[in-house]
């Protein structure tokens, strides 16, 4: 009944000239191409239904004209880097996690790729030059409002950004993912300044709430492969969800993970409970009633919703205590 995913590609006027456009059109050669004057005419239409569009998302190729780099937000961890930035090379994600804030942040379930990659590199160079703490590198998350590696076979941004980073001594990037497909990285030489960050959740959480993602087992296989190749790897147990028996479930999962992965080779770990911008959350709740984890009696403070503070603290303390059995505490960054 549904068109296949990415059956249509919407091309913003002027993007035909970018090499990345040609690469993508070549890789999705059967897609129907529709021209559009401004990408917002399709992406930002009113009244779109994010979840219904997710059944058959379309690709929009556009040029990002401004805000090519942003300062890091309070919802994310900076891992001690004071020059903390992120960019949005893609808007939206091929996966569809129940707890994902993108559902509330974007008006559309379609995916935008900004194809003017050179402009992103230039903006990054400028940010490196003018970074406030000159003695520290610029720390840039390149897979922030998306999962870049998951879509690498269509949009080869991750590998290209890694290559760009290689020549920039003062740049550290984080590539966060749930993908299990390490093959695009196979021909790329590992780099200490390119952190591959995998989000991991216990199998029952992944199965219930991380639609379309590879299983944790597959992700762990990919992580193992990348560690063996010499990539610096970060594990993100984030967001931790307050499911039934959460403590048992997560502690058991940590044991399984570190049975399979050499803890001493993990660069660091991030641990955080579920949290979301309150406005995004309000929007999501209006659109869907089908996910129990979105209907917890959350607490709202400083425009964020999360579990009540005592529950949050207890969760983090308990799980951090479980993690320090495998890694030194200074390698564990937490968010409460």
């Amino acid at each position: 009944m549904w068109h296949k995913r990415f059956s249509h590609i919407y091309l913003e006027d002027g993007v035909e000239r970018y090499p990345l456009t040609r690469t993508i059109l070549g890789r999705l050669s059967k897609a129907k191409v529709v021209t559009v004057r401004n990408y917002k005419d399709i992406f930002a239409r009113s009244g779109q239904n994010f979840q219904i569009q997710k059944r058959s998302p379309k690709l929009i190729l556009a040029r990002k004209k401004n805000n090519l780099i942003y300062e890091g937000s309070m919802v994310s961890q900076d891992f001690g880097y004071r020059n903390f930035y992120y960019n949005s090379l893609l808007l939206n994600c091929v996966y569809n996690c129940d707890y994902c804030y993108l559902q509330g942040m974007y008006p559309s379930g379609n995916m935008v790729v900004f194809v003017n990659e050179e402009d992103f590199y230039q903006a990054t160079l400028k940010a490196i030059e003018f970074r406030p703490f000159q003695e520290e590198p610029l720390y840039l998350c390149i897979s922030y409002d998306t999962d870049l590696l998951a879509y690498e076979t269509v949009v080869p941004y991750a590998t290209r950004f890694i290559e760009f980073t290689r020549s920039q001594e003062d740049l550290v990037i984080e590539l966060r993912t749930k993908s299990a497909n390490w093959r695009p990285l196979e021909d790329v030489i590992p780099n200490e300044r390119c952190i591959l960050a995998w989000t991991l959740s216990p199998p029952m959480v992944a199965k219930a709430y991380e639609q379309l993602t590879p299983s944790p087992e597959q992700r762990i296989q990919a992580i193992k492969h990348c560690i063996d190749r010499g990539w610096p790897v970060r594990l993100c147990f984030d967001p931790v969800l307050r499911i039934k028996d959460w403590e048992k479930v997560y502690v058991k999962f940590f044991k399984e993970v570190f049975k399979l992965l050499p803890a001493e080779k993990i660069r660091d770990v991030s641990l955080g409970v579920f949290r979301m911008n309150a406005d995004y959350y309000k929007r999501i709740k209006k659109q869907r009633t089908d996910s129990d984890i979105l209907f917890y009696p959350f607490e709202s403070s400083q425009s964020l919703i999360s579990y009540p503070v005592d529950e949050r603290l207890h969760m983090i303390e308990t799980l951090k205590a479980a993690l320090v059995k495998f890694l030194p505490a200074e390698k564990i960054a937490t968010w409460t």
């Binding site: 549904w2 068109h3 249509h8 129907k32 559009v36 239409r45």
Partner: peptide
């Protein structure tokens, strides 16, 4: 898949979600 209003110059896009055998056009 695209409606262009000649008088205003505006463009409108219905979602193309359902698969059918018809051809498409603007």
């Amino acid at each position: 898949h695209k409606i262009w209003d000649h008088a205003s110059g505006r463009e409108f896009f219905p979602d193309m979600l359902i698969n059918h055998s018809l051809q498409e056009g603007s």
